[in-house]
């Protein structure tokens, strides 16, 4: 035992150090995993592009951080109609003479917003449903699982189309539609995981000392299934982005927020798919890269959750 006294500052720096250590131990799972590292690198790149896509003005400093987009993505005729790539427009222009590169950069934001919000909400709902269902069992479990079964019977995209048609095409409605379906897989998986944890001694001892249900569920069981939750969150990000892109491609995207899927929809409606490869391929590749990055990360997490899958060596 040390008799030294620690000052508040010391303990604060200690806490920061611990925090960094914590992050480092969490990141260790990516060590030696090429795919996970690639995924992480791509994701961080997209994050930075999304954050700095458009100019920021900090008023009281009278400072403007310039955005990454060379042109205003919505401004018409910054170039000619359907110009192929040039120094001025590295990815060419649209049928309205808009700059494709600028649109691509601006579209990153929509992807990030939809991906993170929808995934967070879906996993949040799914985890809670799974936790409550498995923990209480009996009729609670029956009711919640039958609801999950029913949601499994609803085809994702058609449902989203109908819902967006009813509620109107806005980013919020798109996210709602995605969340209403996406929670189902998390719920099932978390439920089966919690069922096995429920039998373990630590839960029984918590019950024996009279801990409340809420406390047992959220303080004792939840931390144990959290890795699985993260794994499903990673997948959910991927599926949400694909769903948003598909909806936008079909013309049900938010007309006020240009997304990658919508760019491709515009190519279709402009009947330019045959000629304007510079307009079609960048957003498609961007979607693919983004989803790929989260799936790569997900795979790394999967190996942590399920060591069976881990490569020997």
């Amino acid at each position: 035992m040390s008799t030294e006294r620690t000052s508040p500052i010391d303990s604060a720096t200690g806490a920061v150090g611990d925090g960094l250590d914590y992050v480092r131990t969490k990141l260790e799972v990516f060590e030696g995993d090429r795919l996970g590292q690639i995924g992480l690198a791509i994701l961080v790149t997209f994050l930075l592009i999304g954050i700095f896509a458009r100019p920021y003005t900090i008023e009281f400093l009278d400072l403007t951080i310039p955005g990454l987009t060379p042109h205003d993505p919505g401004e018409r005729a910054v170039g000619g109609r359907l110009e192929s790539p040039s120094a001025d427009h590295p990815l060419g222009t649209t049928d309205m003479g808009r700059d494709v590169l600028s649109q691509l950069i601006a579209g990153t934001r929509v992807t990030l917003i939809v991906g993170s919000l929808a995934a967070f909400m879906a996993v949040f709902i799914g985890t809670n449903v799974g936790l409550v269902s498995a923990y209480f069992g009996g009729w609670v479990d029956d009711v919640l699982m039958r609801i999950t079964d029913i949601v499994y019977g609803v085809p994702f995209l058609p449902f989203a189309i109908v819902l967006v048609a009813i509620l109107g095409s806005s980013l919020v409605n798109i996210i709602v539609a995605i969340v209403l379906i996406l929670w189902r897989s998390t719920a099932r998986v978390i439920r089966s995981q919690v069922l096995s944890h429920k039998q373990r001694p630590y839960v029984e001892s918590a019950q024996a000392i009279g801990a409340s249900h809420t406390r047992i569920m959220y303080r004792h069981i939840l931390p144990n299934v959290l890795p699985l939750t993260f794994l499903y969150a990673a997948f959910a990000v991927g599926w949400a982005v694909i769903a948003e892109a598909s909806l936008s491609f079909l013309g049900f995207g938010d007309p006020n927020m240009l997304s990658w899927g919508e760019m491709i929809y515009n190519v279709y409606t402009a009947n330019a798919i045959r000629e304007a490869w510079w307009w079609v391929f960048p957003p498609g590749i961007a979607i693919m890269l983004f989803v790929m990055s989260v799936f790569f990360i997900g795979r790394t997490l999967e190996e942590v959750v399920n060591p069976e899958l881990r490569h020997q060596k």
């Binding site: 598909s246 899927g261 693919m288 989803v291 795979r299």
Partner: peptide
């Protein structure tokens, strides 16, 4: 742990990351 397995995983993950319309457009083009 063979090269086939590693390569296979990457290829399938990439395929899975692509929305239907994107794969369709690439094949179409």
């Amino acid at each position: 742990d063979s090269r086939f397995e590693r390569g296979g995983i990457v290829v399938t993950l990439i395929a899975r990351s692509s929305p239907e319309f994107w794969v369709g457009i690439v094949l179409l083009s």
